[in-house]
Computed example of a mutant assay.
Amino acid sequence: MARDPLLPALHTGVERLGLTLPEGAAEALITYLRLLERWNRAYNLSAIRDPGEMLHRHLLDSLSILPYVEGDSLLDVGSGAGLPGIPLALARPGLTVTLLDSNGKKQRFTRQVALELGLHRLRFAQERLAHYRPGQSFDTVVSRAFAALAGYVPEALRLCRPGGRVLAMKGRLPEEELAALPRSLRGCTLTALDVPGVAGQRHLLTWTAPAVSATEEANP
Rank of each mutant, 00 (worst) to 15 (best):
I86R: 04
E155G: 07
P67T: 03
L167E: 10
H131S: 15
S79K: 03
N40S: 08
E155I: 05
L74T: 11
G104I: 10
P210I: 11
L59F: 06
A156I: 11
L129T: 06
L60C: 01
R34D: 12
R165D: 07
N103E: 00
L83E: 03
H58I: 08
S137E: 13
A156E: 09
G18E: 12
Q112K: 14
L99W: 09
R133W: 02
M169H: 06
T12C: 06
L117D: 11
T110A: 09
V77Q: 07
G71A: 12
H56D: 03
E216M: 12
N103D: 03
G187F: 07
E27R: 12
R161M: 04
A130M: 15
P8L: 04
R92H: 04
I30F: 12
T206K: 10
L159M: 04
G13T: 01
E217P: 01
L59A: 01
S143I: 08
E176A: 15
D139L: 12
P162A: 02
A89Y: 10
L6R: 10
R41N: 10
P220C: 10
R202N: 08
G71H: 11
D194Q: 13
K105A: 01
E27W: 04
E176K: 12
N40H: 14
L181H: 07
G200L: 14
T191Y: 06
D72S: 14
G151E: 05
V212F: 12
H56Y: 14
S102F: 00
K106S: 09
F146S: 05
A81D: 13
T208G: 10
R108S: 15
G163Y: 13
A81M: 11
R16M: 04
P174C: 04
W39G: 01
V97N: 06
V97I: 13
L10R: 03
L117N: 05
R16Y: 00
D72Y: 08
